[in-house]
């Protein structure tokens, strides 16, 4: 089997394992390339049908192209789409001038609300180890406590593909079927499977988005890659990080806040 085939079958195995263990399961769909790949894998795992909800955490600040894509393909793929928003925070005027608070209210808190409302036991997430340093420590099955805290120093090992899919006294389990994929694997797979993807990723006027989220916190990169083949070629030669166009990492945001509070800026 080629590499993509191996990645695909491992991810499908994990998705089915999660479906077997958890009655209340959902797949988190952010409309980006990774979670769209994940949704594609779920469809494959269950022969075209997605037997649990696709959850979209809507900050209300996403790109219009993303909303359009979501509405079109959730219908085409017959997804049970659950959209959740932290309406109270939005009504109170939350926006990204306070980035950490904003992400926390509109993403983390919104997710907590969705878990409370729907009683999800486990969530499928499209994160990958190569995205960010801290994600290298993630497991395929990763418990979170009631405060959403993740204790990465206390996790079961996952040697020889033995997964500990059950954990006690935790509010929910995060399942990461794409953990072993890289950015370029995703693009090769999207190409191989002919999966539709939002046009934000393709170059227009010399710019494209390499990573998408809220309009307020994403910047396009300089790129002429207008097709999947050109994106793959670009990724094979680049050495800047995927999230370089995203507003700074949380640690930088923390640093910035601290420096601002001390009056340096």
């Amino acid at each position: 089997m080629d590499k993509l085939g191996e990645l695909e079958s491992q991810s499908i195995y994990i998705i089915r394992e999660a479906y077997y263990h958890y009655k209340k399961l959902a797949v988190l769909w952010s409309i980006g390339k990774d979670s769209t790949t994940l949704v594609t894998l779920v469809r494959k795992a269950f022969f075209g049908r997605v037997p649990f909800p696709a959850l979209h955490i809507d900050t209300s600040y996403k790109f219009p192209e993303m909303y359009r894509f979501r509405d079109e393909y959730s219908k085409k793929w017959g997804l049970e789409l659950v959209v959740t928003r932290n309406e109270a925070a939005l009504a109170a005027g939350m926006k990204c001038d306070k980035k950490l608070e904003c992400c926390n209210a509109l993403k983390t808190e919104a997710l907590k609300q969705a878990i409370a409302e729907h009683g999800f036991e486990a969530l499928l997430l499209g994160i990958r180890r190569d995205e960010h340093g801290i994600r290298a420590k993630e497991r395929y099955f990763s418990p979170r406590d009631e405060k959403f805290q993740w204790n990465y120093q206390d996790q079961p090992p996952e040697l020889w593909d033995q997964y500990k899919s059950q954990a006690e006294e935790r509010t929910h389990i995060r399942v990461h079927p794409l953990l072993g994929w890289t950015e370029v694997d995703i693009w090769r797979y999207l190409k191989r499977e002919n999966v539709p993807i939002t046009e934000l990723y393709f170059s227009r006027n010399g710019k494209r988005y390499r990573s998408i989220g809220c309009t307020t916190c994403c910047n396009p990169i300089d790129s002429d890659a207008a097709t999947i083949d050109e994106i793959i070629e670009e990724l094979e030669t680049t050495n800047t990080s995927e999230r370089a166009g995203r507003a700074q990492d949380k640690e930088n945001v923390y640093t910035m806040q601290k420096l601002r509070a001390l009056g340096y800026m």
């Binding site: 370089a244 640690e251 930088n252 640093t255 910035m256 420096l259 340096y264 800026m265």
Partner: peptide
């Protein structure tokens, strides 16, 4: 200092 310019553009690095 507490901040620098990032090597690849006019962005802050810490």
């Amino acid at each position: 200092g507490f901040i620098d310019r990032r090597e690849d553009g006019y962005e802050l690095s810490f």
